[in-house]
């Protein structure tokens, strides 16, 4: 099993708290078409499922699931 991070574009307000708190530095903010910023997992393959982003997000916008492991490159999921 390996962690998979996703951010709900509807719930995320782009406050950036998850970008600050992630110990593995997985998340970044990205501008959307409307110009508002939302968080996304730029380095999703580094997620260790510590759930600190989930705990810190006031909007409950972040989901960390455990999915089946897929070999890709050097045994780490990327993207």
């Amino acid at each position: 099993m390996t962690p998979k991070v996703s951010v709900s574009a509807i719930a995320c307000t782009g406050c950036g708290i998850c970008v600050e708190s992630c110990p593995m530095d997985v998340l970044r903010l990205s501008p959307t078409k409307t110009g508002a910023k939302i968080a996304y997992p730029e380095y999703g393959g580094d997620c260790e499922a510590c759930l600190l982003c989930v705990i810190d997000c006031a909007r409950e916008a972040i989901k960390v699931e455990m999915v089946a492991y897929t070999e890709q490159g050097n045994g780490r999921l990327t993207g």
């Binding site: 099993m1 390996t2 110990p23 593995m24 580094d46 260790e48 510590c50 050097n74 780490r76 999921l77």
Partner: peptide, 16 residues
């Protein structure tokens, strides 16, 4: 650091 998901024996903290 950054152990692969496969194989046993790398669990535990601290993650980073």
């Amino acid at each position: 650091p950054n152990a692969s998901r496969t194989g046993l024996g790398f669990r535990g903290m601290p993650l980073d």
